[in-house]
Amino acid sequence: MNTRMVSALAAGFVGMIALATTTGAAELKPYDKASFQAAQQKNQPIVVDVWASWCPTCKAQEPIIKNLASSPDFSELTIFRVDFDTQKDVVRTFGAQSQSTLIAFKGKTETSRSVGDTSAQKIEALFRSTVKN
């Protein structure tokens, strides 16, 4: 890859980050314990996405999750992605039995959980459970 191509890719990536920040999108990030605990302490809405790259159900959930994450309704939401194959200790901590598990929290309180769901309406309801009072 030449320098010009790398610069163009970097500029595009920075632009995508700026767009996500300015449009009030949810934050999507890899799971790390410290960030998850900090979000819980602040009583923030959280979704944990237990995911695997080889999982067809996870691939079906991904565009639904990204679409919901872009909604202003979920601008305060943080979505933590847990890799089912490489973060087995975290998977066990959350009591997830399989990939394609979504777990919703409002702070430290679990509000909803689904496994293998690819219904946009049901995933949206799970997301909404994080922002209810």
Rank of each mutant, 00 (worst) to 15 (best):
V14E: 06
G15V: 03
G15N: 02
A18L: 15
L19K: 10
A25T: 10
A26F: 03
L28Q: 11
P30K: 11
Y31E: 00
A34N: 13
S35R: 02
S35G: 07
S35N: 06
F36E: 00
Q37E: 15
Q37V: 07
Q40F: 10
Q41R: 12
K42S: 11
K42G: 01
Q44E: 15
P45Q: 08
P45L: 08
I46W: 11
I46N: 03
V47H: 12
V50E: 06
V50Q: 05
V50T: 05
V50R: 05
W51H: 13
W51P: 07
S53M: 06
W54V: 02
W54E: 03
C55I: 04
P56I: 12
P56Y: 12
T57Y: 08
C58I: 04
A60E: 12
E62S: 15
E62K: 15
P63G: 05
K66T: 14
N67T: 14
N67L: 02
S71Y: 04
P72L: 06
P72Q: 13
P72G: 04
P72T: 11
D73W: 02
F74T: 06
E76A: 15
L77D: 09
L77H: 12
F84Q: 03
F84G: 01
T86P: 00
Q87A: 07
Q87I: 01
Q87G: 03
Q87L: 01
D89R: 04
D89E: 12
D89G: 01
V90F: 00
V91N: 00
V91W: 00
R92V: 09
F94D: 02
G95H: 07
S98V: 03
S98I: 05
T101Y: 07
K106T: 01
G107E: 09
G107H: 10
G107D: 09
T109I: 12
T109A: 14
E110L: 05
S112E: 09
R113A: 04
S114R: 10
V115E: 11
G116N: 07
T118E: 10
A120R: 12
